[in-house]
């Protein structure tokens, strides 16, 4: 802390101006490093178990291509709109930022809705978490990602409220920036899920 903590640097983008913000952003990057380790473990678990289907269905018998494609489309688009939101923030346009955040949020909610639909469908087919090791690892890996997206939606709502209350400040700008890092990270994880879970499941 100390006077260093409040050293203010006008030349940087708003979210980087205070020392506190710089610490927070670095800390969040490191947290994402831990998240990479977390998802890597879940992927490893899935890859070890995904052919161990017991008496339950296999991946290619189960997966719904259409739902998964819609989910992918929604989430990848939301990452693009999230990027646009940051672009608007850098240009200092609060209305544009709010609009794109809202779009991001709705796309994220759409993703979750389709994912829940997909899960309910599987459960109706008799494929639950308890059926086989493959399904346990599938639901926990994809479900952990879904829980992250849901948390991100709640978090984004809180930040939108703060933007409406306080407008642009170094603090709100930093929060928007950090939630955008989180959002893009979840997108990257989804690309791996799409490839290693769904595409691999279809062909094997």
């Amino acid at each position: 802390m100390g006077e260093v903590a409040h050293r203010y640097d006008e030349t940087l983008p708003l979210e980087y101006r205070t020392q506190e913000s710089r610490l927070n952003i670095l800390g969040f990057w490191i947290f994402l490093g831990a998240e990479v380790a977390l998802f890597a473990t879940l992927f490893a678990t899935y890859l070890v178990l995904f052919q161990r289907t017991g008496s339950g269905p296999t991946a290619s018998e189960l997966f719904e291509v259409k739902d998964v494609l819609i989910e992918t489309l929604l989430l990848l688009t939301s990452s693009f709109t999230c990027g646009l939101a940051i672009f608007e923030m850098r240009r200092g346009r609060l209305a544009g930022l709010l609009a794109w955040l809202l779009v991001t949020l709705l796309l994220g909610a759409g993703f979750i809705a389709f994912e829940i639909r997909e899960f309910i469908h599987y459960v109706h087919e008799g494929a639950t978490m308890q059926t086989s090791a493959f399904l346990s690892s599938f639901f926990v890996l994809v479900g952990t990602h879904g829980a992250h997206v849901s948390l991100g939606i709640g978090w984004m709502i809180l930040i939108i409220i703060q933007l409406l209350q306080r407008g642009f400040t170094p603090k709100t700008a930093r929060k928007v920036f950090i939630v955008s890092l989180y959002w893009h990270f979840l997108d990257v994880v989804w690309i791996f899920i799409f490839t290693l879970v769904y595409l691999l499941g279809m062909v094997m």
């Binding site: 070890v48 161990r52 017991g54 008496s55 339950g56 308890q130 059926t131 086989s132 090791a133 346990s136």
Partner: peptide, 13 residues
């Protein structure tokens, strides 16, 4: 929740 990650049946390891 009775999942099958480390169980002896249904593919657990």
């Amino acid at each position: 929740f009775d999942t099958q990650f480390f169980t002896m049946a249904n593919g657990g390891m």
